[in-house]
Design a binder for these strands. Structure first.
Length: 272
DNA sequence: ATGTTTGTTCCGAT
DNA sequence: CATCGGAACAAACA
């Protein structure tokens, strides 16, 4: 589930709760695999202090002393949860850090598409470099954004979710950003104008910032919660995602699969 | 029973 | 060879 705002929320909550604490013990659920090996994972973090937590695209990076980086990608159903001693766990538990103050950090993943890896400094740099610019960093402007889009031969919806063009947007925020910019999601990238690229970059930043402010989106399945178990509120502010009627013109919203992903758009406000 | 789901990667086709 | 689109990964729910 998590896109940029959800991942950012998780990173912030973790940062204020685990930085400065030392991992005393690690538990890995039988059969679960961490890269490069479970043994490396345990050995790399036991008796090591957390020195920082950050987000890279949709990854959570927990940085330990001695240049050890633990990368976790939540994919669709991953959760990082902080627990106190005595708190219950769940059947989707994959691994646990036990800290010196006996609080725990647990990774849960129902569908198991997520991943955890231990990275060296160089591997961390490589990971960071494989992604396109962070949309909220002001490292990309509309002209550069358009230039990237023009190299693609696909729909704008697909390109917007391409993490190599710009990182952090997934199906929900891309769908809403396109609606806000009044661009039809099926528009081919080579048909876009500089004005449209400008609008789209602006609406992407606006919806991502709003998503962060609302601490992410929690859908009815309640899969996404922050590390303290708290739901987000962005679902109350979806523009067109999962809507039946257009909030602007009241036209019936069209639902269509675009590159395999469910996409909502207003055929009147977002004309091809 | 079938179709759906917030993400990424791999493979076959072009 | 590069790029694109669809399948696959797996589990729960309506």
């Amino acid at each position: 589930m998590p896109e940029l705002p959800e991942t950012e929320t998780v990173a912030r909550v973790l940062r204020s709760n685990i930085v400065g604490h030392t991992v005393q013990n690690v538990k890995i659920i039988k059969g679960y695999k961490i890269s490069p090996t479970n043994k490396t994972f345990a050995k790399s973090v036991i008796n090591k202090k957390v020195v920082g937590v950050q987000r890279v695209a949709k990854n959570i990076i927990i940085k330990f002393e001695n240049n050890v980086y633990v990368q976790t990608h939540l994919a669709m159903t991953g959760r990082l949860l902080l627990k106190k001693s005595g708190d219950q766990t769940s059947k989707w538990l994959k691994w646990v850090f036990v800290f010196e103050n006996s609080t725990r950090l647990e990774f849960h993943d129902m569908r198991a598409f997520g991943k955890t890896a231990v990275l060296t400094k160089k591997e961390f740099d490589d990971l960071t470099n494989k992604y396109g610019p962070e949309p909220l960093d002001n490292k990309i402007n509309a002209k550069a954004f358009l230039k990237q889009l023009l190299t693609k031969k696909t729909s704008i919806k697909n390109a917007l979710m391409d993490q190599k063009i710009i990182s952090g947007l997934g199906n929900i925020y891309a769908t809403d950003a396109l609606f806000m910019a009044q661009i039809n999601p099926k528009t081919k990238t080579d048909k876009l104008s500089l004005e449209q690229a400008t609008d789209l970059l602006k609406s992407s930043r606006e919806i991502l910032n709003e998503g962060i402010k609302n601490r992410g989106a929690t859908l009815p399945d309640k899969m996404y919660v922050d590390p303290l178990g708290k739901s987000g509120k962005q679902q109350k502010h979806f523009r067109i995602y999962q809507k039946k009627e257009c909030p602007i013109c009241k036209h019936k919203v069209k639902y269509e699969k675009i590159n395999g992903r469910g996409t909502y758009f207003c055929p009147s406000c977002q004309k091809p």
